[in-house]
Design a protein around this nucleic acid. Structure first.
Lengths: 242, 242
DNA sequence: ACCTGAACACCGTTCAAGT
DNA sequence: ACCTGAACACCGTTCAAGT
């Protein structure tokens, strides 16, 4: 039945035409849209050139007219996501940075494990420039030394991506249990392992087991961001000096 | 010639025996050793069940007697690496935390992109417990509130892994150029893109382009760690209060 | 220029069968 | 219990050939 692949029957031709009308022909943007939909529903690892191509009723080779390789396609998907980022807002630089951090985190968390792509690709579209400009202006304008401001933005970005990625993987590890049960399970596991290893060898870990495992992922992320902001604030020279 | 696969010729049998003597038979540890060697020479993505098995002159199915799947094997590889970590040292909690951060970073950086495994797997061997106990003791003993100490260790670990992973990927992107050229190239690229996008739309990014791209990876990592330590220090209540 | 079928050189995992 | 060949259902990328 290989002839059917060469010459479509009238029905198959109509079906393909109908599908073509609904989903426009191959294009950079259309391919990114399909790949992003797979990311959103199943995760980055489920994106394959074959699967994306199949949604256009063709083979993987067709995609290579638009993207040099799979990596380039994923970079374009990340760019599309970053473009959708909310602009940071706030009065003082602390508020702007906090707003930025949570905006990026939310954007990444809304697309499963897309955060992992940020380690390999530095997104560099206009949106990133706009947001970076705004943060840098707020920080330097607020008295943060330029080098501290510039380097801190990088540290922040790295921490945000790491937390978003790790948070997704952690949430995937316990799909069956709800939030409360997860916390209890982690506590039980860790304390159990500690006691099994040696009853009194790790007094601090045992004593503070509850605080080590307390807090929701959001609370812990907010804590991390505030920690970094406090670190930056400690390097702002006092006002009266200038 | 499929008979050769079933019944080995005397020569082939001797060759296999010789190989077996040099490399002991299949075992949990021997498999981890081979996988780690592939990580060290080519990176995590180059580890495949087939390649590891081939080094024991067998097929991938043989490995499933020791590891439920590839993920479990990689987790064992990560555990092996973490066990080799140096113990943190120092007098005050700041020194201990800084020593810990650089020890973890060095250990991860010594094994290419192994840091990426830490996002998916929480290593939980005795070594991790020992080190965690030491840091927690130093921090809480130094006056850091327990919850701040506990949560900070997590933030630190996340940042360390993210920097190690991103640092590896960045170094891979410019294998041809040396350090100095890399810095210049990045500056040129970013400034070029900024000017191309809009000459005066991003005054801060253009003005501080040099400081945005200055510093070696090590300097920037040390800055990030000190930023986090400063953030923690800001939450230590003053001595005279107690 | 854009598109494609087929092929190449790989994957992780399973399973029946062997020892 | 440990080990294995073969098979299943996939991969990314290339290339000659088509329009």
């Amino acid at each position: 039945v290989p002839e059917r692949q060469r010459r479509l029957s009238p029905d198959a031709a109509r079906a393909r035409a109908a599908r073509s009308r609904r989903r426009p022909r191959l294009s950079h943007d259309a391919i990114v849209t399909v790949a992003l939909r797979i990311v959103d529903t199943e995760g980055v690892d489920e994106v394959s050139m074959r699967r994306v191509a199949a949604e256009f009723d063709t083979g993987p080779a067709s995609l290579y007219a638009y993207f040099a390789n799979k990596d380039e396609l994923l970079r374009a998907v990340l760019d599309r996501v970053i473009e959708s980022m909310a602009a940071p807002a706030g009065d003082d630089w602390c508020a702007v940075v906090r707003s930025y951090a949570h905006a990026v985190h939310e954007t990444l968390a809304a697309h499963r494990d897309i955060a992992k792509l940020t380690f390999a690709h530095i997104p560099s579209n206009d949106r990133v420039f706009e947001v970076s400009e705004r943060i840098l202006a707020a920080m330097i304008g607020g008295g943060v030394p330029p080098r501290v401001a510039a380097w801190s933005v990088d540290v922040l970005a790295l921490y945000i991506a790491a937390d978003a990625y790790e948070g997704y993987l952690a949430s995937q590890r316990f799909t069956a249990a709800d939030g409360a049960e997860i916390g209890e399970q982690i506590v039980a596991d860790i304390v159990g392992k500690l006691r099994a290893a040696s009853p009194d060898a790790f007094p601090f870990l045992v004593k503070y087991a509850d605080v080590l495992t307390s807090g929701t992922p959001d609370e812990r992320f907010a804590f991390g961001i505030d920690l970094l902001i406090a670190g930056v604030a400690a390097q702002v020279p006092p006002r009266r000096q200038s």
